[in-house]
Design a protein around this nucleic acid. Sequence first.
RNA 1: AGGCGGAUAGCUCAGUCGGUAGAGCGCAGCUCUUACACAGCUGUUGUCGCGGGUUCGAUCCCCGCUCCGCCUACCA
Length: 887
Amino acid sequence: MDGVTDPEEASGLPKRFDWERVEAEALLRWSQSPPAAPSGGEPFSMVVPPPNITGRLHMGHALNLTIQDVAARYQRQKGCDVLWIPGVDHAGIAAQNVVEKQLRTEGVDFKSLGREAFVERVWRWKESIGSGILEQIRRLGASLSWDHERFTMDPGFSRAVREVFVRLYEDGALYRAERMIHWCPRCLTALSDVEVTHLDRDGELFTVRYVDAERPEESLSVATTRPETVVADLALAVHPDDARFKGWVGRRVRVPMTDRTIPVVADAAVDPEFGTGVLKITPSHSMVDFEIGQRHALGNLSVIDEQGVMNAMAGPLSGLPRDKARIRAAEVLESAEALVGREPHKNAIGVCYRCQTEVEPRLSLQWFVRMGPLAVRAREAVSSGKIRFFPEGWQKTYYEWIDNIRDWCVSRQIWWGHRIPAWTCQDCHHLAVLREDPSVCPSCGGTNLVRDPDVLDTWFSSALWPFATMGWPDDTPDLRRFYPTSLLVTGFDILFFWVARMIMMGLYLTEQVPFRDVYIHALVRDEFGQKMTKSRGNVVDPLELMERFGTDAFRLSLALLATPGRDIRLSVERVEAARNFVSKLWSAFRYISLVVPPGTVPLADPAACQGIANRWILFELGRLEADYAKAMESYRYDEGALLVYRFTWSLFCDWYLEATKVDFERDPADPLREETARTLLTVGSVLLDLAHPLMPFVTEELSRLFGFANRCTGHAPQKAPLAGRIPSEWGESFERIRAIIGSVRQTRSVMKIPPTQEIPAVLVLSSRDAGDPEALWPFLARLGRLSRSGEPSLGGIRAPFRDGYLVLGLEGLVDFSREVDRLEKEIEKTAGKIAEISGRLGREDFVRKAPPEVVEKDRAQVVTLEEDRKGLEVALQQVRTFLGGQP
RNA sequence: AGGCGGAUAGCUCAGUCGGUAGAGCGCAGCUCUUACACAGCUGUUGUCGCGGGUUCGAUCCCCGCUCCGCCUACCA
């Protein structure tokens, strides 16, 4: 082996990007030395939408976190002091369900355990899964401020929750009352309005006859979808203006299946158009009926218990579950000849958003937050622009909800969560809501206190997330420096659940908006546009994709697809394409590592470059920097990603790297060699910076391997970006080369000349400022596989371009008829364009009314198109001559 | 029922402050040219959903319609 080394192995980067190793190393490094806060940097802060403790990383999280991490890294690169708080939500009902189920498999009913032991058990379970989902989030490369991790049930946070509850109560913004609420008969708890989702279901519309109590020969027919509630009817109602039923108001009818009679009342809530125009009123089992019942003092009669089973008051239906009771009710009504109609009917029913069980409207004693006053301020925060939504359109949805706000039921009949700090004195019935647990009744001094058994809605604590994570209600340095937060990134599905409530609570408790900007992203769907659900079985595991294609590729694919306001259809092909890009990037830097001599340093002054290609790529890079900044500042990370993608692949790799090969073939004494090597490093370093927020692993690895003092490696932002320092004409010469090469390649491809075959050629430049042919030739020779013909009048066909043409010596080599076709097509296309534009220019009103610069642009366009056509026509003529000359 | 969003190349989607429509994937042909075959080169495809209107000019703005998706809402 001595002295014999494979040059390929000896120098340069490994051929492939080994992301598995690089990611593992980087994650270790990042956990050991988190990014240091730059001194004097502006604060930039975010709080992560806390994932449920029960959760595993899914596509939604991956998208959400990728976007935030792009933001965090971008801001950090700008020199900001970034705080991005991680954390987990205790997920009341969901977590309780998990542990209940666990106990059930052990044959234990959680109720028999008792409250204290059960809650203890949930804590133990929480410890056992550790920070499971946060570990997965780390693997995404998410650069969170891990020393700030919070949990919604930790002591500090719990104190904040309690403080808020008491403060709201003291201010009269929180009250306890008996109201109609949504009840989930499976979770056995109240739900807030937003926790109920509506599903269209095929049901039946039954028409039931109620006979007059005095005159059995007269009756009213009533349409209902829930005949099982007939036994709870307390009235029938008709519209006050409905002439059909004028005489009925005030009379009484018999309730079928019972021996009760009920009044017929008039109420404007009845829609005379629907059904028979008569509505049966069941105050205890319907929201609107409850209200009508209130207006007419009908009282309440409940026939369904908390588990959804018909109770003792339900007469012949007693003991049956709701759905069975409906069938039985129809039978009983039919046999009593009270059922006069039955037809299929579609209606929307409310289900529990967690378990899909049909919810039951239920009258019960619950705690409510008075939303009206909070909503007024929350609306103003958005309409005044203090909070901005991206995309802006979500404002409307927000207002829609805010303007129709209803009080928020915040008590839940479960055990896992923040227990409500309210005590009732059994002696004097005083209700005490307190910051500290009482030992005696504050009112009568008695010791007979009973604590409210309920816990708070999980979203109640989530609403405090932006400031409670920073130590509120204490006045902390974090709050002073980082609150309000700069940006919130979240999905539209929790706009009401979370975003709106944070705004309300933030304004109420801190007198400030909780965040300035809200980036609202869409849902990640499968490649067919279907929502990913367990039941569909189309769930794609992000960790799997990360392992298969690398985390950078996965992140990049999400970023590229994340067009604001549009759902994302993720397919493996897209991730694969991003993986190919990462590969391409890696191999480009491998090339740099092979051609740039050791000890080379980046350009000291890019504006002093001489090389045609160097000037061009610096010009393009300057443009990229400017466009990229614009995209990133407006949260168009998809656009930023696309800009980086296109620059890297289509300009840097396809053209610039090829062009540098020309420079490296030059005489060893030529100063261009060094300039080009230095330009490669300069552009490479900046490019990695721009790509870094999107692809942190590969860019940091490359920056380290090259020893770049760029922002990926934690160095200070560059003082003067390229944008603005590169003259705008720096691109021109190389653009001409690109045009010429393009023309040659077309000809070559059409005429079936192998790419490797050299073609003798003569270059003719028509305009004086077209540049120095001597400078052009080395690039043409290499990139176009041309050899410079010494014969000035070389016979051959023409490859035309804007300000000149190339004569290609192709005699005897090729099928010229193809070239004729191609040129004719080109000419036709060009002529078509000329016709269109000059036609426009010929119209008098266009010239008069259109802006002068548009007219001018068109005129110039016609001139250049004419030049193109002339070039093409001459070329065509030339080929025809050859064809004629051939046998 | 009301509100919102979408309809652009075979597929997935950009885009145009109104002035000759783009990318990726796919497809076809040619290339193992010493960074990359996870690659290179060349080519291919569009009444920019339908009907009106405004305008010198509309894929883009306005009105109406059709289809698709979502959100809100107990017409029982």
